[in-house]
Amino acid sequence: MNNAGQFRDPFRELIEEYALGSLDAEERAAVGAHLASGCAECTKALEEARLLVSQLAYLAPEAAPLDMLRGRLLETVRAEAAAAKSHTSTISESAIPLWMWGAVAAVLFFALYNAYEAHSLRETIRKTQEALTAQMELQQESARRLAWARREALILTDPRSMKIAMSAGTKGMPELQATWHHSMGIVVSGQKLPMPSGNRTLQLWLIPKAPGARPMPSMTLRPDADGTFDLLVANPPDSPSGTKALAITEEPAGGSPQPTTTPIWVGAVAGK
């Protein structure tokens, strides 16, 4: 043995038996995995080994099949060849007639039309769904506004509600009217109010009676384009009995936890 033999691939010497199929399952799997890994030497050796193994066929006692087998095979083969030839010639020799092209075109047109119709239908359904959603949102908003208006009406018309006039400290500024219902909330309304500058807003404050207590922040609202101011506080943070006055200041957008400006409107809450 030469020196190179010392470094021989251990799988190489199993290749002939792998080709013979005599390796037990574990060795066979190992050699198979090795071949699958791409070992060029063993792959080439396997080709040679398969040729070698095939020579073992000559060890069998010579025999010849019956002529009948040849006849049966040729009958089958000729029939298949004729069928293949017939199929090929049918395709190649018979040109596709014009009417068939017309039919193909019609089918294509129909398919395209169907695709267009399907797309249009999908688009219509999508738009209808969007309109329906918008309509439902509108209805919900209308219902909300209606409920709000009813609540305001009840607050404003209930004889148990307390009327609070909120006068402005600045001359020329319109007066606001606050109406406080003990269970339904406070409505503050006014007309022709000037628009706060920039993004600033108007914020309502409840001034507690308790000495030293800080003003309690309430809701914010900007007048509309006509200067109409209509604020509903559904859940006032305190009851009228504990409140000394209502005040409105101008605050940054979103409101403030504590007043940052002098009140524009103030209205005293009548004590009971």
Partner: peptide, 24 residues
């Protein structure tokens, strides 16, 4: 190319050894 005569030739050349092996 579906050449039947080629099939006949291949069968005549090798059917004996194939049959010999399979029969064994």
């Amino acid at each position: 190319q579906r050449d039947v005569s080629a099939f006949e030739d291949l069968y005549d050349r090798h059917s004996r050894i194939v049959y010999t092996l399979v029969l064994r």
